[in-house]
């Protein structure tokens, strides 16, 4: 099974040292921001779901967005990717406003996202899932679709898709329905499919949710390889330990606002984070849970496929 083959060799970190002069303060300016958020708010009835004063995302880095359940992480993510409209405020991608831009227009601007509940297109083969991700296929227009004008382009797209499937160890599942894949494999397909758009910024909503711990390391390796490609990665997560391992910068949300920013080490030492996010359970529940997971991982037979669908 390739689902839990070892992660690719540790890729280099092209942004190592980029955050050296940056203060770990909420709203702090970054040396080279790709995404800038200003005064963005979203209310659901009387509930203030998101209220972010200022946030900059460093180009080429892996930025983690963490916070307890209900902190507004996913809502904030939806606001950034156009899936939800903010009540006020603006978002800039490469200096251009993308506030209220429809989500399908963002893919051609270099932004792509995945979803917390994996959206593998279950009744389509894996290879079709991949080919769908290609942008600019002229055969996606009604009249051109009837003529053979898109065949050459389709062959190029297919080769590109096959290369990505190879990279994500999914080649053997190429012609299977995506619905037959395990939960972890679906996450991989979704990530690989997102790369078909050749994005500059990849937004991953809980990429490790529901994934067998044995596969987590492989997934983390793939996230790092995105950074090695020169892409910017933002991901939502609530497991602190995952964040420690791969992120260059961590943004902490609680009750819709950003309460802390910093390098992973700054965050784990930050009193505000420990109070607001981890609360009194810091040393007990969360940590124990992680240890249990690791214990389970060792119990699992190596090479057993991820059964979680």
């Amino acid at each position: 099974m390739t689902a839990d083959q070892p992660a690719p060799a540790q890729p280099v970190n092209p942004v190592a040292g980029a955050f050296d002069g940056v203060d770990p303060e909420p709203g702090v300016p970054k040396p080279d921001p790709i995404l800038v958020v200003d005064d963005i708010t979203k209310h659901f009835g009387g509930l203030r779901a998101v209220d972010v004063h200022h946030l900059e995302i460093q180009r080429g880095a892996i930025t983690a967005l963490i916070g307890p359940n209900g902190a507004g992480k996913t809502t904030f993510f939806n606001l950034l990717t156009g899936f939800d409209r903010p009540d006020s405020g603006s978002v800039y991608l490469n200096g251009e406003s993308i506030t209220r831009v429809a989500p399908h227009r963002l893919a051609s601007r270099g932004m792509v996202r995945t979803f917390q509940l994996t959206k593998a297109l279950t009744r389509m083969p894996v290879i079709d899932n991949m080919k769908l991700g290609a942008t600019g296929q002229i055969g996606e227009h009604f009249w051109q679709a009837l003529l053979p004008v898109w065949r050459r382009q389709e062959a190029e797209i297919e080769a590109q898709a096959d290369a990505l499937l190879e990279r994500f160890n999914l080649t053997h599942m190429r012609d299977e329905y995506a619905g037959t894949l395990s939960g972890g494999q679906r996450k991989l397909v979704e990530m690989a499919r997102a790369l078909m758009t050749d994005p500059t910024i990849v937004m991953l909503d809980e990429p490790m949710a529901g994934v067998n711990p044995a596969l987590t390391q492989s997934l983390l390796g793939h996230v790092k390889s995105l950074r090695a490609d020169g892409r910017t990665v933002i991901f939502v997560e609530h497991d602190m330990d995952v964040v420690q391992d791969i992120s260059d910068w961590v943004v902490v949300m609680a009750e819709g606002a950003i309460i802390a920013e910093g390098r992973p080490d700054d965050i784990s030492a930050d009193e505000r984070v420990i109070d607001a996010y981890l609360g009194s359970h810091h040393d007990s529940d969360l940590f124990e849970e992680f240890e249990n997971e690791q214990a389970n991982e060792q119990d699992n037979e190596p090479g057993s496929p991820d059964e979680h669908a």
């Binding site: 051609s108 979803f115 997102a194």
Partner: peptide, 10 residues
């Protein structure tokens, strides 16, 4: 299969 996935892919 999933409208939002299609929209996210442009």
């Amino acid at each position: 299969e999933d409208e939002d996935a299609a929209r996210a892919l442009g």
